[in-house]
Simulated scan of single mutants.
Amino acid sequence: MTAIGTRVVQKVSSTRAFARVAPRVVPALDRAVHRLTRGKVLLSALMLPGVILTSTGARSGLARRTPLACMPETGGRSWILVGSNFGREGHPAWSHNLLAHPEADINRKGADIPVTAVLLEGDEREAVWRELVAFWPPYATYQGRVLREIRLFRIARR
Rank of each mutant, 00 (worst) to 15 (best):
F135Q: 11
G57N: 10
G39Q: 07
G122I: 00
A111E: 15
R151P: 00
R108F: 09
L147Y: 02
T56F: 03
G39R: 02
I155L: 02
A140H: 06
F153T: 06
L29Q: 03
R38D: 11
R59S: 13
A104N: 08
L81S: 04
T66P: 05
F135W: 04
V12M: 11
R35K: 12
K11S: 14
G76M: 12
L36Q: 09
T6L: 15
L99E: 09
N107R: 15
Q10T: 10
E149F: 04
A28R: 14
A127V: 12
A63C: 06
V82K: 07
R108C: 10
L29D: 01
A32P: 11
L119I: 10
V12G: 00
I155C: 03
F153M: 02
T66L: 01
P137S: 05
V8L: 15
R20Q: 15
L99W: 10
T37P: 02
A100H: 07
I106C: 03
A69W: 00
R148G: 06
I113S: 06
L42P: 01
R38K: 10
V9I: 15
G61L: 04
F153S: 02
T6G: 12
T66N: 02
V26I: 08
G122T: 02
L147G: 13
D105I: 08
I52Y: 01
R108Y: 00
R130W: 07
A111F: 04
L98I: 01
G144Q: 06
H34M: 13
R157W: 12
Y139E: 12
L132Q: 07
H91G: 05
S55L: 00
M47W: 09
S55K: 10
A140W: 11
T15Q: 08
N85E: 03
E126C: 04
A117R: 07
R7C: 01
A22Q: 07
H91C: 06
R108H: 14
P49E: 11
L147V: 09
R157D: 15
M71Y: 08
G5S: 14
